[in-house]
Simulated scan of single mutants.
Amino acid sequence: MSDDQTATNAQPWNDPNAEPFLQIKSITKKFGAFTAVNNVSLDIYKGEIFCLLGGSGCGKSTLLRMLSGFENPTSGQIIIDGQDQAGVAPYARETNMMFQSYALFPHMTVEKNIAYGLKRDGIPKAEIATRVTDMLSLVQLDQFATRKPHQLSGGQRQRVALARSLIKKPKLLMLDEPLGALDKKLREETQFELMKIQESLGVTFVVVTHDQEEAMTLSSRIGVMTAGEIVQVGTPHEIYEFPQNRFVADFIGSVNIFEGRISEDGTDHVVVKSQDTGTDIYVPHGISGVEGQKVAVAVRPEKILISRTPQNDMRNAVTGVVDEIAYMGNATVFQVLLDSGKRVRVSQSNRTRSDDGALTWDDRVHIGWAGAAGILVTS
């Protein structure tokens, strides 16, 4: 198998012949005069962990509830594994949903919580016992089977809820802010556990989250939402490195935005005259624009170099003064006040334990970035 074929198999969304597992076609949801989800179309493929990422009120949870059948679309179509879901009740869909609150039964043990759905479906006791044992092993809760939810940690309760959602073998599992109740370290650990469990079962996950780091870690692809619309779909790398508009560039991670106007529009480059930097900004790729057009250049903090000496090898270079410093352990973040008055965020990896000669407050510094580090955004 060629490298191209391997890449296509790993990323079915790049294969024009691949059949989507979940198709969302022009879905709109209105509550009176308010449009919560506006004409959203989306294809999700079997075995993906697809994250819907956006701020509060952007419509991501409403979209999830329509997929699960808890809300009916005002218009549009949802197709799961070739089956139109119109008129199909939530309990009749081959889907399940894991709620943010986990919704565990406090009076039931772990194993009874996990078995509840199977018992309701009338599955034979022997089969229930086998499937519960297998699921307890999968989520590493074997020794906690007889405990009740209040006797578990937050991470353990999260795994009980996950096991209960998966034991009915849904084709599609929807997770609404699944790790939101966990502290940062436990959330990071649980993200990788969740990925391993999903990979071992092959179930398609659709995850709603407002946490950018969580979406970047978990997902095969991300759909960024705002005001009821999906404004970009892509892999974490594509979303971060190649945002299609200003909202995505500004929403994902940390970024510096330099306003300006096109002063030179070449076939292979653009020059932006910016008052924010007090200089011209060179971007080595062209756009469909015209001279004088208002644009912005987005540059990630980690792609900017900072030093006391001039950045002569950088295509874009400016000067300023260190205004604020934040030591983050793995990196130090500098806020630099440029001569133009613009504040710029610069991130520098801490590769050594020694800080001899480190930059400090009020140091005069030179910062710069390669032309290719800049992202030209027009809206």
Rank of each mutant, 00 (worst) to 15 (best):
M1I: 09
D4Q: 12
T6I: 15
A10G: 11
L22Y: 10
Q23H: 03
F31G: 05
N38R: 11
N39T: 11
V40C: 01
I44C: 00
G47Y: 06
G47K: 05
E48R: 11
L52S: 03
G54F: 07
G54D: 11
S56K: 01
G59H: 00
L63S: 06
L67S: 13
E71Y: 13
P73V: 14
I78G: 01
G87R: 12
P90A: 05
Y91M: 10
M98P: 04
F99S: 09
F99V: 08
K125C: 01
E127S: 05
T130N: 10
T133Y: 01
M135K: 09
L141R: 08
T146F: 07
K148D: 09
S153F: 09
G154H: 10
G154V: 03
G155I: 05
Q158M: 07
L162S: 03
S165G: 15
L166G: 05
K168P: 01
L173W: 03
M174A: 06
D176G: 02
E177L: 01
A181S: 14
K184I: 11
K184V: 13
T190Y: 01
L194A: 03
L194N: 08
E199M: 10
G202D: 04
G202R: 06
V203R: 02
H210K: 03
S219C: 00
G223D: 04
T226L: 00
V231P: 00
Q232R: 04
V233L: 00
V233E: 01
E241T: 14
I252R: 01
D265G: 12
G266H: 12
V270I: 15
S274Y: 12
Q275R: 15
G278C: 09
P284M: 11
I287E: 12
I287K: 13
E291Q: 14
G292C: 02
Q293A: 13
K294F: 00
V295E: 11
V299R: 05
I304H: 09
I304M: 01
I306Q: 06
Q311E: 03
V318W: 11
D323I: 02
E324Y: 14
V333P: 01
G341L: 11
G341K: 08
Q348A: 04
N350I: 09
N350H: 10
R353T: 14
D355C: 03
D356N: 14
W361M: 15
V365S: 07
I367P: 12
W369P: 08
A370N: 15
T378E: 15
